[in-house]
Computed example of a mutant assay.
Amino acid sequence: MPIIDSERILLRPFTLKDAPRVVELAGDKRVAETTLTIPHPYYEHSAIDWINTHQERAEQNECLIFAIEEKNNHELIGAVTLRLDDAHRRGELAYWLGVPYWGRGYVSESIKVVIEFGFNELELNRIYATVMKKNLGSIKVLRKNGFRYEGTFPQHDYKWGTYEDVDCYGLLREDYQKLVQFEQGEGRI
């Protein structure tokens, strides 16, 4: 499992020592209500079970699950996952961030380095993410990182007694490369 360093964050493997912090952050109802898979309430045994799956899933090239760690104080602040589909050279991005860290650019920074890793190191052709239509903050982060809206799945997921519309956003390798060139001043989109 790789460790990815960025300006303000470190993406690293989770350890069992992280379980109480996962419960504290992901257990916040505001985090759970806009994610597709995080339950509420979130118990420590669930966090331990989840963390215990990470190594095997990485070894089977199924997915890479990174802890987002704030570099200045080494605190766990969230998670970012890249689920891999080798047959189709694509990855599905998923993430969550603790409420105290919302609006500070941490998810955007995490996504940026994960998509760079996905396209450059894993040689993926496409990275996509599904997000509840009501999760405007997440949609903003995806767009900021070059993802394009691809469509809506009406009433696609059932969460807490309600059917939720889910939007799909995607980014192709060729579009990512154009974005990088534009950011580096080497060309225009």
Rank of each mutant, 00 (worst) to 15 (best):
E62F: 01
E44K: 10
Y149A: 00
I127F: 00
L10C: 04
T162E: 15
D5R: 12
L179Y: 04
V31N: 03
I139W: 03
Y101N: 12
K144F: 07
L179A: 05
G105N: 02
N125K: 03
E174M: 13
Q181S: 06
V180Q: 13
V23D: 12
D28W: 01
Y176T: 00
K112H: 12
N61I: 07
R57D: 14
S6N: 02
E109Q: 15
L36D: 13
A47W: 04
V23M: 01
D18M: 06
E121T: 08
Y42Q: 04
A26H: 02
T53I: 06
K71P: 09
E62R: 11
N120A: 10
E59T: 09
A79E: 14
S110V: 10
R12A: 00
S108C: 09
L122N: 07
I189K: 07
I127A: 05
F66I: 07
D28M: 10
G91Y: 01
G105R: 00
W96T: 03
L84H: 07
S110N: 11
R83E: 14
L64G: 02
V80K: 09
K133E: 14
S108F: 04
V113R: 15
G105Y: 02
L93T: 00
P20S: 05
N135T: 00
Q181R: 10
V114L: 10
E56L: 14
V23T: 06
E24W: 06
P13E: 15
L36M: 14
L136W: 02
R57V: 04
Y169T: 03
N73S: 12
E164K: 04
R57A: 10
D165H: 05
R126M: 08
I189D: 14
D28E: 13
K112N: 14
L76A: 00
Y176M: 00
Q177N: 11
G170K: 00
F117I: 12
E44V: 03
E59M: 04
K112I: 05
D167S: 06
L76C: 02
K112E: 15
I111Q: 13
P39M: 03
E109I: 03
Q155T: 04
W96L: 03
F182N: 14
T162G: 02
I77A: 05
R90P: 01
F182R: 15
N135F: 01
Y149W: 08
V31M: 10
F117M: 08
V107A: 03
Y158V: 02
